[in-house]
């Protein structure tokens, strides 16, 4: 890349060039400048995304233990994967997590966003809603681990005071995934609500005024105006949050580490286990490629179904 000194400035501009020549020149200079501006991001993208992606795909065809050279094994890892019950269980568990997490999170976030739009515009409230998002995932997970501890947690204390049986939130096979999903809903819904809220700002208040003049109720306006006009934003929010949801790792690693048995062994955790606990980087790479494919398919369908690329606002 050329040095920034090649960018013409007022003082260094060549004297009296012809008018068409200048126009051509300026256009070319813009391109250079643009390239210069995106260079840092491109370097990051290539170094931290493209290269690891290509290398990861290559490694998925090898047997590699990190310490001795990778050995090409063809489709061996993929054959193992298709026959690996832990992998299929991980896919099932991850899907279950995503459904609970995204389902709950989207509904709650939408509700919060609409309330922020229609009910109160208090900045304090908006900040409060976002507060959980400022807590790190690991800290949030640890706090809930204590709150929901079977023996000592205040959550279970409350249950037993009310006269209910204690629940092994993180230690029973039935509850582990729903609990982790809800903990992450708590952390993320404020952020998601804020994204949706931004989308709501794009809907003209005159639409609502017109509806109110026609005597429409809040509920009617929500389903007749808000939801349809919010579709592209909602679609985008869904795509982003679903991708994030599929990659759940830290909360699981901190609270259950995949247990009880394999009840919360989500894909990311299994990949991590294979790579960093068992040094099977080839197989772990194959699992990562499988996850990539799942995400590509899911995202493609989401994009198509929600028509996230088109808006009805115009």
């Amino acid at each position: 890349m050329s040095a920034p000194s090649s960018i013409p400035t007022a003082s260094s501009a060549p004297p009296a060039p012809s008018v068409p020549g200048r126009r051509v020149r300026r256009r070319r200079d813009d391109t250079r400048l643009a390239l210069l501006f995106i260079l840092p991001a491109t370097v990051g993208l290539v170094a931290f995304y493209f290269w690891p992606l290509v290398r990861g795909i290559w490694l998925s065809f090898t047997s590699w233990d990190l310490l001795s050279p990778a050995e090409f094994v063809g489709l061996e890892n993929y054959r193992t994967m298709v026959a690996d019950p832990v992998f299929w269980n991980a896919v099932r568990v991850t899907l279950l997590y995503v459904v609970i997490n995204i389902g709950l999170q989207t509904v709650l976030a939408l509700l919060i966003a609409v309330l922020m739009q229609r009910l109160s515009r208090s900045v304090l409230l908006r900040s409060l809603v976002l507060a959980p998002y400022l807590v790190s995932n690991v800290v949030a997970a640890l706090v809930f681990l204590w709150i929901l501890d079977f023996q000592l947690g205040i959550g279970n204390q409350l249950l037993s005071w009310v006269g209910l049986d204690r629940i092994g939130f993180f230690t029973s096979e039935t509850w582990a995934i729903p609990t982790i999903a809800v903990v992450n809903v708590w952390r993320h819904m404020g952020y998601t609500a804020l994204l949706i809220f931004a989308g709501l700002q794009a809907i003209s208040p005159t639409t609502y005024e017109a509806a109110r003049v026609d005597g429409a109720s809040e509920t009617r306006m929500f389903f007749g105006i808000t939801l349809p006009l919010l579709r592209p934003i909602l679609g985008l929010v869904l795509i982003i949050s679903v991708i994030g949801s599929f990659q759940v790792f830290d909360t699981v690693a901190v609270t259950t580490n995949g247990g009880p048995v394999d009840a919360s062994r989500v894909l990311q955790l299994y990949i991590y286990d294979k790579a960093f606990a068992q040094f099977d980087f080839g197989y772990a790479s194959a699992l990562s490629v499988a996850m990539l494919l799942i995400l590509v398919v899911v995202t493609f369908f989401q994009y198509r179904v929600t028509r996230a690329g088109q808006t009805d606002l115009n």
């Binding site: 079977f150 023996q151 092994g168 230690t171 029973s172 259950t256 580490n257 247990g259 009880p260």
Partner: peptide
């Protein structure tokens, strides 16, 4: 298992009289 999970703490169980 429900009570101890993946991180059992037997010394705490003894110390707390559990």
């Amino acid at each position: 298992y429900e009570e101890v999970g993946t991180e059992p703490n037997p010394q705490q169980a003894l110390g707390s009289g559990r």
